[in-house]
């Protein structure tokens, strides 16, 4: 409804983690969306999605999310979020407020003073969902100029792209298929591995420094065992666990993984013929040197 005929337009929602640490995800996502003809608009009044407040105050989480939703409603545009955490909060609150009149009134009471009112006129999607539903595999395939044939990778969706099913629900959390299909469109092979949809542990990192690393270590072990040359993520937090922390994990567990972790749009971007430089490969801690060499590309 919020899209004019033919043109796909979204308000991009960045959240906190991406501008804080993971610019390459944003950079590559913008580049890829441009190639796909998706117009991304900015909303200067967005604030934190609300998720970090949920353990402290569920009401405050809902209010922060609702504020963002109202901004998008004012613009008359749907939201595309890059971070699954943000997507989860915005989607959940959007659905809750659309379905619960009493709750909507309560929330609107707090927003009224700012001239805001939740009406329930827009939708929220994660990047993966936009790619799959609004653009579609066929159209994406048509933009692939340099198929990544011969490349073997694995995917890690991250919990909040898939769960809770009640609110996310666009892919099967037990056996997710969409990100895999999006990967295979690039020409790369996406390998199955043990416990694919298991959590990386990132949300616990603030209160426990051991468990998240153990969880990530286990996943990296499984990914390595099946012979994947890279891991593909669509979440800034998962990416920090697998990429930023990989060397630390190697030291701690006396292992050698050397598994580059790419943001999905970086992978797609390569297949579209964009350069590693344009796609922010410089930011990656685990350098994908071998992988780029295999593709006949220079690292950055």
């Amino acid at each position: 409804m919020a899209e004019s005929q033919g043109e796909i337009k979204y308000l991009i929602f960045l959240g906190c983690a991406i501008p804080y640490r993971v610019s390459a995800y944003e950079l590559s996502a913008r580049k890829v969306m441009e190639k796909l003809g998706v117009k991304l608009e900015e909303m200067p009044e967005f604030n934190c999605c609300g998720v970090p407040m949920d353990p402290i105050s569920h009401e405050m989480m809902m209010l922060l999310a609702a504020r963002n939703l109202c901004m998008a409603e004012k613009k008359g545009l749907n939201i595309m979020a890059l971070c699954p955490g943000c997507t989860g909060a915005l989607k959940k609150v959007n659905t809750m407020l659309k379905n619960d009149k009493k709750l909507k009134e309560e929330i609107n009471k707090h927003l009224k003073e700012d001239g805001l009112e939740f009406k329930g006129t827009i939708n929220v999607k994660h990047l993966v969902q936009v790619l799959n539903e609004d653009i579609g595999l066929e159209k994406i395939k048509a933009t692939v100029k340099k198929p990544l044939t011969g490349l073997k990778v694995a995917e890690h969706n991250g919990c909040h792209v898939l769960r809770p099913k009640e609110y996310m629900g666009f892919d099967d959390p037990e056996d997710p298929k969409i990100l895999k299909a999006l990967i295979e469109v690039t020409g790369a092979e996406c390998l199955d591995y043990m416990d694919e949809s298991q959590c990386c542990g990132a949300p616990v990192a603030g209160v426990n420094d051991r468990i998240p690393l153990q969880l990530t270590e286990e996943k990296l072990t499984h990914v390595k065992e099946v012979g994947a040359q890279a891991l593909i993520t669509v979440c800034p937090f998962c990416h920090m666990m697998f990429d930023t922390n990989q060397m630390r994990i190697e030291r701690l567990f006396n292992e050698k993984f050397g598994i580059p972790t790419l943001h999905y749009p970086q992978l797609l971007g390569l297949a579209m013929g964009l350069t590693p430089e344009e796609l922010g490969f410089r930011e990656l801690r685990v350098k994908p040197t071998e992988l780029l060499k295999q593709l006949g590309l220079q690292g950055s």
Partner: peptide, 12 residues
């Protein structure tokens, strides 16, 4: 209590 990763596996 604070160790929950809110991964929602249990909920699902």
């Amino acid at each position: 209590l604070w160790l929950c990763a809110a991964c929602f596996t249990c909920t699902d």
